[in-house]
C-alpha cells in the first residue's frame, strides 16, 4: 500500500494503460518518424494534456480528449505514448 502511494506522486503509464477518466500530460512517443508525424498532426506531442474518455475493450481503440478535441487512437499506437498521470 505504501509503495502504491509513493508511485502515485509521479505515475507514468502508456496512454493505452490509462483508466477512463484519467488525465495526464504526454511525456514522449516511442515510434518512427511516420507515427510521430501523424500523432503530431493531430496535436498529440510532448507536453500536451490528454484525458481518456473510454476504456478500450479487447484491445480496441481508445478515445482521448486533447484540448477539447476528441481523437480515437488504436491500441498499439496508444501503447507507444508515455503519459505522466496527474497526481
Amino acid at each position: 500500500m505504501k509503495e502504491e502511494k509513493e508511485e502515485k506522486k509521479e505515475k507514468i503509464v502508456t496512454a493505452a494503460g490509462m483508466i477512463a477518466g484519467q488525465s495526464g500530460a504526454v511525456l514522449s512517443v516511442d515510434g518512427g518518424h511516420t507515427l510521430l508525424g501523424r500523432l503530431e498532426a493531430l496535436g498529440i506531442r510532448p507536453g500536451k494534456r490528454l484525458r481518456k474518455v473510454n476504456s478500450s475493450f479487447m484491445q480496441g481503440p481508445a478515445v482521448f480528449d486533447v484540448e477539447g478535441c476528441s481523437i480515437a487512437i488504436g491500441f498499439g499506437m496508444a501503447n507507444r505514448i508515455q503519459v505522466k498521470i496527474d497526481s
Binding site: 476528441s70 487512437i73 498499439g76
Partner: peptide
C-alpha cells in the same frame, strides 16, 4: 496493417 487514428468531430 494500420491502426485507427482519427479525429472525432463534435
Amino acid at each position: 496493417k494500420p491502426e485507427l487514428l482519427i479525429e472525432i468531430p463534435p
